[in-house]
Design a protein around this nucleic acid. Sequence first.
DNA 1: TTTTGCCTGTTATTTGCTTAACAATGTGCT
DNA 2: AGCACATTGTTAAGCAAATAACAGGCAAAA
Lengths: 218, 218
Amino acid sequence: MKIKNYYKNLPHKTIERLSQYRRALMICLDNGKTHIFSHEIANIQHITSVQVRRDLMLIGYSGTLRKGYNIQDLIEVISHIIDDEEGIKVAVVGMGNLGRALMKYVRGKRHKLEVVAGFDTNEEKIGKEYKGVTCYSIDDLEKVIDELNIKLAILTVPAKYSTETAEKLVDAGIKGILNYTPKPIRVPEDVYLEEYDMITTLEKVAFYIKMHQEKEGE
Amino acid sequence: MKIKNYYKNLPHKTIERLSQYRRALMICLDNGKTHIFSHEIANIQHITSVQVRRDLMLIGYSGTLRKGYNIQDLIEVISHIIDDEEGIKVAVVGMGNLGRALMKYVRGKRHKLEVVAGFDTNEEKIGKEYKGVTCYSIDDLEKVIDELNIKLAILTVPAKYSTETAEKLVDAGIKGILNYTPKPIRVPEDVYLEEYDMITTLEKVAFYIKMHQEKEGE
DNA sequence: TTTTGCCTGTTATTTGCTTAACAATGTGCT
DNA sequence: AGCACATTGTTAAGCAAATAACAGGCAAAA
Ligand SMILES: NC(=O)c1ccc[n+]([C@@H]2O[C@H](COP(=O)([O-])OP(=O)(O)OC[C@H]3O[C@@H](n4cnc5c(N)ncnc54)[C@H](O)[C@@H]3O)[C@@H](O)[C@H]2O)c1
Ligand SMILES: NC(=O)c1ccc[n+]([C@@H]2O[C@H](COP(=O)([O-])OP(=O)(O)OC[C@H]3O[C@@H](n4cnc5c(N)ncnc54)[C@H](O)[C@@H]3O)[C@@H](O)[C@H]2O)c1
C-alpha cells in the first residue's frame, strides 16, 4: 500500500491547495485548454509557481518540459487522491440560516460529496424537504446516519448545543465534523475535526485594519 | 509608541486565540467567576495551558500566582489590543443566502464591529432593509462607504463577480476584506485580506475520512 | 518551620511549511 | 549543430508557530 501511505504525509496545506487547483483546472478545461504551466496555476491562486511545483512533486505528478501539465490528467490524479471512490455522504445538522445556505450551496457542487440529510429539533422543520433533501429529527440521528451511510456532518446548531450535538454525532458513527459553531468541540481521535469561527476571523481582519491605521498615524 | 509596535509582532494565530479567549472569558464573567487559571482557559478552547500562558506573555499580561488571571482585567487588556476605539464599520457585499445569514449573525455580536450596510445589484433588494440595515446599490459603493466610514467588507457575491467587486471595494477605500467567495482575489498591500473557502474545507474533511478508512482496511 | 505541590513566566527545541537556490532537460532559434 | 532559455523537479535554507523543558515563587500541609 505504498501509494496510500504517502498520502498520509501530505501536508494539510497541500491537501487544501489540491482541492483548489482542481477547481481551477476544471475551469481551464472547460475553456478548451489542455496544458498549463505551474506559473499559470500559481497566478490563478495568487501563490508562487514554486509552491505549485512542490505540491505536485509531493503527489508524484510530472509535467512535460516546456508544455506544462496535462490538465485532464492532473485533475484525475488529484481526484484519485482526495476523492473517495464511493463518495462521501454529508449531513447538515441545524437547519437554520447558515445550515440552509450551506445546504443549498454545497448541493451538486461536487458529485463525490453529496448532502443527503438535514437534522433539526424544530418540529416545523422536521419532515420537510429543503432543496430536495429531507430534514430529519435529531432523535433519528443514529438510524438515519446508519441507513444513509453518512460519514461527514456540518455542524450549524446554536452554540449552546454544540457539545451535546457533537457527542450524538460521534456516537452515531460520524467520521468527520466541520464545526461552524463558535464553541470548540471535542471528538475522539478517529474522528476528523475541522473548526471555523467567523467572528474570530472578522475580529482578526478588524485588528489588522486598526493596526495599519495606527502605523500610518505615527 | 512602544506599545503599538509590539502588537505588530504578535503571531497571527495569537490574535485569533485572543479573540476566542475573550469570548470565553466574557461567558465566565457572566457566570460570576472573577479569576481563572491558564489550564481552565485551555480546557475551554481545547488547547494546552502552555499555549495560553505563552499568548498572555506575548501581550505582557501577568496573572497572580495561585489565583490565576483576573478575568475582568484580562478582557480589558485583550480588548485594548484587538478592538478599535472608534469601532470598525462593516459592510456585507452580496445580500444572498450567505450574506443575509451573516448579516443577521454578526449584527449585535460585538459592539465594536457594526454592520452598517449591505450592497447588491438586484433591484428588488436595493433600498430594502434587512435586520434594520439598508441594502444599497453597488453603484453607490464609494459614496456610502465614505459617508458611513466603512472600513471592512465581507464579500459574498457570486464567484464570477469576485474580482471586479473586490476592485470596486479597494477603489472605494475599504481597508480589509473577508472573502467567502471560492475565487481568490488580489488586493494592494495596504488592504488586509482574509479568504475562506468552504468547499476546500469540506473536501479536506472528506479526504481525512477517506484516509482513515483506508488505513483501517489495511 | 520546612516541605510539597501547584501555578506562572520564560527560554530552548522541534515541527511543519514556505521560500530560495539551483541542477536538469528538452525546444526553438541562429 | 550549438546556444540561449523557459520550465520542471529537487534539495537546502529560512520562518513561524507549537511544544517541551524548566526556573521561580507562594500557599497550604506536615
Ligand atoms: N448565520 C451565520 O451566518 C453564522 C455564521 C457563523 C457561525 N454561525 C453559527 O452557526 C450556528 C447556527 O447559526 P444560524 O444563524 O443558522 O442559527 P439559527 O438559529 O438560524 O439556526 C439554528 C438551527 O438549529 C436548530 N437547532 C436548535 N437546537 C438544535 C439541536 N439540539 N439539534 C439540532 N438542531 C438544533 C434550530 O431549530 C435552528 O433551525 C450558530 O452556532 C452560529 O453561531 C452562524
Ligand atoms: N451559501 C453558502 O452557504 C456559501 C458558502 C460558502 C461560500 N459561498 C459563496 O458566497 C457567495 C454567495 O453565495 P450565496 O449562496 O449567498 O449566493 P446567492 O446567489 O444567494 O447570493 C448572491 C447575491 O449577490 C448579489 N450579486 C450578484 N452580483 C453582484 C455584484 N456584482 N455586486 C453585488 N452583489 C451582487 C445577488 O443579487 C445575490 O443577492 C458565492 O460566491 C458562494 O460561492 C456561499
